[in-house]
Amino acid sequence: MSSRASGCTRVILFTLALSGTLRAQGTLSGTVTAPSGAVVPNAKVSLKRIADGLTTETRTDSGGSYKVPDLRPGDYELSVAAEGYRPSTVTVTMVAGVNQTNDVQLRPLLSLEDLGFSAAQTRGSAEEQARLDKRSHMLKVHQRLGLITAIPLAATVITGTFAGGRATTSTTRDVHAVLGSLTAGLYFTSASFAIFAPKIPGTRVHGPIRLHKALAWIHGPGMILTPVLGAMAFAQRSRGERVHGIASAHSVVAVVTAAAYGASILSVSLKF
């Protein structure tokens, strides 16, 4: 009887001890992902108990998840390896009876540093992007205003053919002058957007833009000279005089200016 009682006692004690041990164990689980956020299936997960070197291995499932149960409290080395990625190793401390989650994001096997790019080369700059954005915006306004300016410019040239000579009326000259003033106003507004657009350091200027900029040295001064000479010619005609002296160069300067302006538009619109 007593032996049976002691046997039962031993079973009970063993069961109590076992349940206590089990309650002290925990489960480590987690998800393994790539830098893009995609899960990494079939990654090798190794968990080595630092105290005695006991290692448990498993693999992630199709959802990139792993689970290692029945872990005693203590420090572990969690290692994750998958093809195409650098192995990852972290230390995990298991606490008695506590299940833990440890997600792992793997790094690519190759990085830009492996290709010889410095951090400065690969690092972007919001400031530089802002400068590029401002430059593009201003040049876009310059382009649109420049195209719009071509309309009153053409109208000014056309009315100019009727504004000179003895048989013209003051109305014709007035219309020509107003169109000319409108053209000049739009022109200098457009030009200001191009002149004050941010410059990008380290850029070598080449291609059709060089011709476009060179032509500005013709139509720019021409746009100043043409209205000046035009005002002189207007005054002479208003006094009943023939257009004479330097004022007579008004039409030639205007035509050259208009031609340079047209060529400037074509230089960046068409491929020659």
Partner: peptide, 22 residues
Amino acid sequence: DSGDSNRDLHMLQTTRGGQFPI
């Protein structure tokens, strides 16, 4: 290089090359 520095800078801006240079 597309043969036109103005176009290349515009391409750089459009593709957010200032923030993402590579």
